[in-house]
Design a binder for these strands. Structure first.
Lengths: 236, 236
DNA sequence: TGTATTTTATTTGTCGACAGAAATTATCCT
DNA sequence: AGGATAATTTCTGTCGACAAATAAAATACA
């Protein structure tokens, strides 16, 4: 059980400001991937000894996560991973569809040549995930694709909200997608290609229209999954 | 120089979790009111002795403010009040107009009777501010009015972005509004009344249309102020 | 045996202190 | 004297420890 730092005393072995970011990034991923499921209690001391650092940087990471709504903290007691509000999912869908439309429209209006390369690269990754029938990779690469489009739109306010929505969507989809059994993903690939084309053509109206139908397509897909699973869960 | 707590030792005199919130709220107000102007350096030690508490709760408040983009922090060095990006103001206007529209439309669709009472109360406060020709009160009460409409729309994602935009708008307007010299405010009062009417009538399309013209009205007003002042500032 | 009260235990919020990084000033060499 | 290097200062990031607040357990009481 000999540790690698057997010299005089404890070796931090890590740069000064990096601790918080590391904890923040890792916890964020674990929350979005449902490694830490909704409602899962978060213990500061436990995290402190897991990452081998003091509670102070842990707390800072938690405060930032709370600011994004990913964890909820009761005063003086227990902080836990935020629950997903299934009763008000329609507000999520409303916001998601609108941000799909707005960001795609703005990308058509404001994109630069180098943006298109990034977008096409993301689309290739998404297509690869579909080809491989890797559902989790589809979720991630689809989010990255639309995130790249949003960046090309260059509106930080929309980018911020949209990324947050895509994160929440990642969490929701993880709950339901285990495997793909239908041919819809290939349709998404084609629609993505169409979106790239109208963005490149700087056709804002067409971009809006395509993004709208694409988004509503996805929302319908999610709702169908929910309806299917709800029938099962009611039995519990 | 005798302080009020002259007894044995230091008297905290404040509840356990309240320190962070107090510092956060106060700093937030001071930033939005430009008491702390953009670029103003923030010193943790200075704040700690000002509020008579340790640096720990101060830092937590600062982390939360940084999460909202109100302060910017360079690693290991100086944290300061965020600057206003005047070069990209159009992104702010785009987002503001869209959120005006969406929140008003959703309010028309989803409001409940008690929401209308709150909205009317805010409108009364705005009208009073216009009557008193109090420009700063107009800014605050106008934001509160539209915030109440957003709440009635009941979409937390839109509410969050909209409130953030209204905050930023409060900061921008403080820079320019010293006094009112024209009759536009009265027009805003009338438009507010029209908006309340269509919300109460649950006419979503009309709400969208009114909100749009109202928002564009305000944006034009701000841009006019900017054009006027820019001519002066160029001389510097 | 069931309920109210006290005691214990666990976890958070706050504190003072120290060490690392960058900016500032002082010193030295050519 | 001018510029490079070294010392100082100043502020942030991290740490360990303590105290308050709440939950859980134990005890007393009817």
């Amino acid at each position: 059980m000999t540790n690698k730092d057997t010299d005089t005393n404890s070796a931090p072995e890590r740069k000064r400001g990096s601790g918080v970011k590391m904890v923040y990034d890792l916890l964020r991923d674990e929350i979005l991937d449902l490694v830490l499921p909704p409602g899962c209690p978060i213990d500061e001391v436990q995290l402190a000894e897991r990452f081998k650092m003091s509670r102070t940087p842990i707390r800072e990471a938690l405060v930032r996560l709370a600011g994004e709504g990913l964890i909820a903290t009761l005063p003086n007691r227990s902080t836990m991973v935020s629950n997903i509000d299934f009763l008000n999912l329609h507000t999520f869908f409303d916001a998601l569809v609108l941000m799909y439309r707005v960001t795609t429209r703005l990308a058509a209006e404001h994109h630069r040549p180098e943006d298109l390369e990034v977008i096409r690269a993301r689309q290739a990754e998404f297509a690869a995930a579909v080809q491989a029938q890797d559902a989790l990779a589809m979720i991630a690469t689809n989010a990255a694709f639309h995130s790249a489009i949003a960046e090309a739109g260059r509106n930080p306010y929309f980018i911020g909200l949209f990324k947050r929505l895509l994160d929440e969507g990642r969490r929701i989809l993880r709950l339901y997608y285990q495997s793909y059994d239908d041919r819809l993903p290939q349709r998404f690939v084609d629609e993505h290609e169409d979106m790239i084309a109208v963005i490149a053509a700087r056709d804002a109206e067409a971009a809006d229209r395509l993004a709208r139908t694409h988004a509503e397509q996805i929302v319908q897909q999610i709702q169908k999954l929910f309806a299917r699973n709800d029938r099962l869960e009611i039995a519990l």
